[in-house]
Every structure is written in structure tokens, then in C-alpha cells.
């Protein structure tokens, strides 16, 4: 977990590195570039396919861009129209639950790390195990809970007459709470990993001075957690945005007004004429756009979030 520990590789970067390139190095870079091709080909193919006309689709190689006559952005437009409500819905539940997860995770990690009581390891173990639960094991009770027991849209019916509120927001609220609950374990583990490396002395000293747990959290721990919050936000945002099973089982229908972007994408491009691949590719990119942007901008934070 401690990536700080240092590495034999980090010798001083020499500007004249080119002079030292040997045959072995050339081989290495060729290999690395080959791997780049391996990882990017499916994505690149998807991108060029998404702008092909159906004729170009049949006549050009899948990974080559079409000629000028074979380019159309119509599929992107169709995909964007089909997915736009899904994008909004996904934003509506992804952002709040990302924030809630991070806050709860930080609190739980603090309570389980920087305080001392017996049994906290056991409690923490339940959090870790919570990361690994296959969601299949909970979705039947979950849908039973939300649809039969809670029935939010019925209970909140008085709200739906208000401006900006609609019945679909009941489903959105369900998704926010659900994603928050299942996101807490991973966030807790990520924060705890950081809190374990914090200076215990400083916190002990503060507590001996009579500072309450809350004060220590607010004054010392929280400010030091900001980088970790960035990691957790980025990681959780992509996880929740990409999630599918809860969308499928709680929203159920692609045509539900609350349908998420992944749910709509799963049914996109199945036209009477067979599978419309360019449309599917365009849809895949539209749906992935927010995560791609976040990933490209914050690749380091994402990589850190990955190392549970």
C-alpha cells in the first residue's frame, strides 16, 4: 500500500537518454507499443466504426477510418439523443452517492483507525468483506425492499406535483442510497489505508490536550484527507457510473424515465435491421465520456484508488 517506499528505478533522468538506447531497449519499446496497440485497438476500432456509414462499415477494414464519403456523425447524434436522459439520471445518482460514500467512508475509517477499542478489527473485517460480496446475493431482497416495503414513489407522491420533481426521482433516491451503502466498504478501506500512515503522535497529543474525537477529525484528520478524498471521488464516480446490475434490477426497464446510462446503452442499436454497430459504438463512447474525461484528467488518483 505504501507506494512511497522507493524504487531502484528512479535514477536521475538523463536528457541524453537517446544516446544510451541499445538494441534491447528498442525491443522493449516495440513491445510496449505493441501492448499499447493491444489495449487501444478495441477502443480505436469502436471510435472509427462509430462514424462510418453503413456502406463504409461493410467496405472498409474495421480499424481504418472511412473515407470522406463514408463519414457520418448521425450515429453520435442519435446515440446522444437516446442517452441524454440516461446521462442526466446517472449524474443525479452518481454524484450524491459518490460524495456520501466518501464522507461515510472517511468517518468510518477514522472511527476504526484512530481510536482504540477492542473488536474494531472485527468490525473492520465486516467492511472489507462487504467489498467482495457478489451483488447477486443481495439483489432479490433489495428489489423486494425498495418496491414492496419502501415503495418510495407512493410515499413521496405528494412531492411529484412540485416543480423539478417527478416520480422518477423516487428511483433516483433509491439508487443513491443503494450505491452509497455498497460503496461505503471500499471507501472505508481506502481511507483507513491512509489513516494508518498518519502521525499517531500528533493525534494522541491533541487528544491528551482534551480535544474531542470530533475536533481531532475536523482539525487534523480531515485536512490531511483531502488528497484521499480526491482519490475516492474519482474511483467511486467511475464505479457508480459504470455500474449496471442495480440499474437493471431496480430500474428494470430501458424506457423507465429514471433509466441510467448503462441501462439504456445495453439496449441501444437493436433495430429491426439487425444490430446497428456504429450506433452501439457511438453510444458506448457517449456513455463512457464522463468516465473517460475523469480518467484522463486524474489517471494517477484512479490508479491509487485501484490498489486496495
Amino acid at each position: 500500500m505504501s507506494t512511497e517506499t522507493h524504487s531502484q528505478t528512479d535514477t536521475d533522468p538523463t536528457p541524453s537518454w537517446i544516446n544510451r538506447v541499445s538494441a534491447g531497449d528498442v525491443g522493449l519499446y516495440v513491445l510496449l507499443l505493441g501492448l499499447v496497440a493491444f489495449y487501444l485497438t478495441p477502443i480505436q476500432t469502436g471510435l472509427v466504426t462509430s462514424i462510418k456509414t453503413s456502406q463504409a462499415l461493410r467496405e472498409t477494414l474495421p480499424f481504418l477510418p472511412p473515407g470522406a464519403a463514408g463519414i457520418t456523425f448521425e450515429k453520435w447524434q442519435v446515440a446522444f439523443e437516446a442517452l441524454s436522459t440516461g446521462m442526466i439520471n446517472s449524474m443525479l445518482f452518481t454524484i450524491p452517492s459518490t460524495i456520501l460514500c466518501a464522507v461515510f467512508g472517511s468517518m468510518a475509517a477514522y472511527g476504526l483507525t484512530l481510536a482504540n477499542w477492542r473488536g474494531q478489527v472485527l468490525v473492520f473485517a465486516t467492511f472489507i468483506a462487504g467489498i467482495f460480496i457478489p451483488y447477486q446475493a443481495v439483489i432479490i431482497p433489495l428489489s423486494e425492499f425498495w418496491t414492496v416495503w419502501v415503495n418510495l414513489d407512493g410515499r413521496l407522491a405528494f412531492l411529484w406535483g412540485l416543480p423539478l420533481l417527478a416520480e422518477k426521482h423516487a428511483t433516483i433516491i433509491e439508487l443513491i442510497i443503494t450505491h452509497t451503502a455498497y460503496g461505503i466498504p471500499i471507501c472505508t478501506v481506502l481511507f483507513r489505508a491512509q489513516y494508518q500512515t498518519m502521525s499517531w503522535e500528533m493525534i494522541e497529543a491533541a487528544r491528551l490536550d482534551g480535544a474531542s474525537m470530533w475536533r481531532v477529525y475536523r482539525r487534523i484528520v480531515l485536512p490531511l484527507s483531502i488528497p484521499m478524498f480526491a482519490v475516492v471521488f474519482i474511483f467511486q464516480f467511475t464505479q457508480i457510473w459504470n455500474e449496471f446490475l442495480f440499474s437493471l434490477t431496480l430500474i428494470r426497464s430501458v424506457s423507465d424515465p429514471a433509466a441510467s446510462v448503462t441501462l439504456i446503452l445495453s439496449g441501444l442499436g437493436e433495430a429491426m435491421e439487425g444490430v446497428d454497430f456504429p450506433l452501439r459504438m457511438a453510444g458506448a463512447f457517449v456513455a463512457a465520456l464522463p468516465t473517460l474525461i475523469v480518467y484522463v484528467l486524474f489517471a494517477d488518483e484512479f490508479a491509487e484508488g485501484v490498489q486496495v
Partner: peptide, 22 residues
Amino acid sequence: FRTIYLLPFALSFIVTAQFWMW
């Protein structure tokens, strides 16, 4: 290189499935 190799992991299964079907 690391960013490129890790890129697919940032994508949704639903998205990568479209690419691989093609």
C-alpha cells in the same frame, strides 16, 4: 504507458462489451 494499459479498467462492462462484440 500505465495510463493506457489501465484505461479499459475505467470503462463500464457494458461499454467494453460493445467493443468486443464488434
